[in-house]
């Protein structure tokens, strides 16, 4: 039984669909990256795992989210409290906005401990957690307020808070986007190390295909509310099959490669509510044929354990 098994999830905001039939599966200790641009539905999918979306405006229109075999969408408030933190924890993009500015960081970690592991909710455990996430001089740092720490250190505190509840699954939503490259490298390294040490599964949400290679075993690419391609990380990065994944990988400049012009993708990312009929990437796709604009392609197996939402893929 997989740790997380999302089946055909559909989420509406008011009358606008933002997630349209997403299925994902993550084994215990595994790492899956969910990649896509703004508005593709990746963060909404991530938040739905612990049912964190405010309803209304959000509405779970269809599907199920099985966490350790139990459907999150049918849980009672008491059951939800037990899985939030205890089974699934989150780390978000802006650590500065997620931490309480008027509480010392030690107190914030202790609060999580009291809720989930009350017997260990002491200074020793707080210091151990801060040390585990690589914060130097943790005994002193517990007394710091969030504004006294740099962005990278704040993100480490957020990760320590997430670990305090000893979750089985860590959802990291753009955990390095607000950080500098050298700090980004440190945080990715830390997440990989924690995964090895603790056997904790990670769902990495990102727009940056560059960082998935260091962490994820599998990658799912989202576009306009749907998964368009899913494969093992190496396969996907080396030989992307869906035209969108291919275009995304080709459009970014690569260090050390000489090219006069970048291969830009024409047009813009369609916003929810304005998704085109047929294949949603067709208006921007260099390979689109007339039937692409009429028929909605299905996410179909395509050799090995790959899935692609394009009937014209050459394998």
């Amino acid at each position: 039984m997989p740790l997380l098994d999302i089946r055909d999830l559909r989420i509406d905001f008011g009358s606008t669909r933002v997630v349209d039939g997403v299925s994902l599966s993550l084994a215990e200790g595994g790492c899956l990256a969910l990649v896509g641009e703004s508005g593709c539905g990746k963060s909404v999918t991530a938040l739905s795992i612990a049912r964190l979306l405010p309803t209304p405006p959000a509405r779970y229109a269809a599907g199920e989210i099985a966490l350790q075999g139990r459907d999150v969408l049918r849980m009672t408030p008491a059951e939800l409290r037990a899985i939030r933190g205890g089974v699934v924890s989150y780390v978000f993009q802006e650590p500065g906005a997620s931490l309480n500015p008027v509480l010392r960081v030690g107190a914030q970690i202790r609060e999580t401990l009291r809720l989930h592991r009350p017997r260990e909710a002491g200074e020793t455990e707080v210091v151990r957690l801060l040390k585990q996430v690589g914060i130097p001089a943790p005994e002193q740092r517990t007394r710091d307020y969030p504004h006294q720490l740099s962005g990278g250190m704040q993100q480490r505190v957020m990760i320590a808070m997430a670990l305090a509840a000893a979750p089985k699954l860590l959802v990291a939503d753009e955990p390095t986007t607000a950080l500098d490259v050298t700090i980004q490298a440190q945080i990715i390294e830390l997440l990989a190390e924690l995964r090895r040490q603790l056997g904790m599964a990670i769902l990495l949400i990102t727009h940056n295909l560059g960082i998935v290679g260091d962490l994820a075993d599998r990658v799912a690419v989202m576009y306009a509310g749907q998964i368009v391609e899913e494969a093992a990380t190496g396969d996907l990065l080396r030989r992307p099959l869906h035209p969108y994944t291919q275009a995304l990988l080709r459009s970014a400049p690569i260090l050390g490669r000489e090219q006069d012009r970048l291969e830009a993708i024409p047009g813009t990312v369609p916003v929810p509510g304005q998704w085109p009929a047929g294949c949603r990437f067709a208006p921007r796709c260099p390979m689109a044929r007339s039937e692409c604009r009429e028929q909605v392609p299905v996410l179909a197996p395509c050799g090995g354990d790959r899935l692609v939402r394009c009937p014209f893929v050459e394998t």
Binding site: V181, G210, I254
Partner: peptide, 21 residues
């Protein structure tokens, strides 16, 4: 060396800087 590399085969050794600016 900290710039993420997409191609898993052209991976260079990464110099992880300690500390912060």
């Amino acid at each position: 060396s900290a710039v993420p590399v997409v191609d898993p085969q052209s991976k260079r050794p990464r110099i992880i800087l300690t500390g912060e600016v």
